[in-house]
């Protein structure tokens, strides 16, 4: 059992209290507050991070269960000086308003584009086989685990569509 979690390329020791969620570990112990707590019960997606390449709700994970895992948070995806393509697209398309769900949206979208590239179907896919056609409906379904109360969905879709197109080119 490793005694650390790697967060954005830096190793951090596990918390003493096994009750600490991965989310609280990131926010309180590592000091990375970009990952947000919106509901703490896996019902909003604001706490989405990427663990070993897969997006999860960090609120429904105990930090002690992630020893040795590699976690990418919004801070690891890009910085104000070097934002990722999705981060830039969110700014350009106004894919946010209050900004609180935004890191979760971007982490989810980052992983989602990989999932599509790997041919993973969704509830919106017409068939379960073959290459996924990136449609608006596919993006909407795949992003439905990330609530946005400001109602920026249409702009978030536009931002993701832009980046998905660029990737496809």
């Amino acid at each position: 059992m490793a005694d650390y979690i790697t967060v954005n390329d830096t190793k951090h020791p596990l918390p003493d209290d096994p009750r600490v969620s991965l989310l609280d570990f990131l926010r309180q112990e590592v000091g990375l507050t970009g990952t947000k707590k919106g509901c703490d019960h896996g019902q909003c997606g604001a706490c989405t991070v990427i663990v070993n390449g897969m997006r999860i709700n960090s609120c429904l994970a105990l930090a002690v269960m992630h020893d040795g895992d590699t976690v990418t948070t919004i801070e690891g995806i890009g910085t104000p000086g070097a934002p990722s393509a999705l981060q830039k697209a969110f700014v350009e398309h106004d894919g946010y308003q209050c900004g609180y769900c935004t890191p979760g949206q971007i982490c989810a979208a980052t992983a989602m584009l990989d999932e599509i590239a790997h041919g993973m179907p969704s509830d919106a896919s017409d068939t379960l086989e073959g290459e996924i056609q990136i449609s608006d409906e596919e993006i909407r379904e795949r992003m439905s685990g990330n609530l946005c109360r400001c109602g920026a969905y249409a702009n978030i879709l536009a931002a993701i569509r832009d980046v998905a197109k660029e990737k496809a080119v």
Binding site: L32, T33, G34, T35, K36, T73, I74, E75, I77, G78, T79, P80, P83, Q87, K88, F90, V91, E92, D94, Y96, G99, T102, P103, I106
Partner: peptide
């Protein structure tokens, strides 16, 4: 675009 946009999309706000 919003002047605080980069802070929001990078989780630094």
């Amino acid at each position: 675009p919003r002047v605080e946009g980069l802070a929001k999309v990078t989780g630094t706000a």
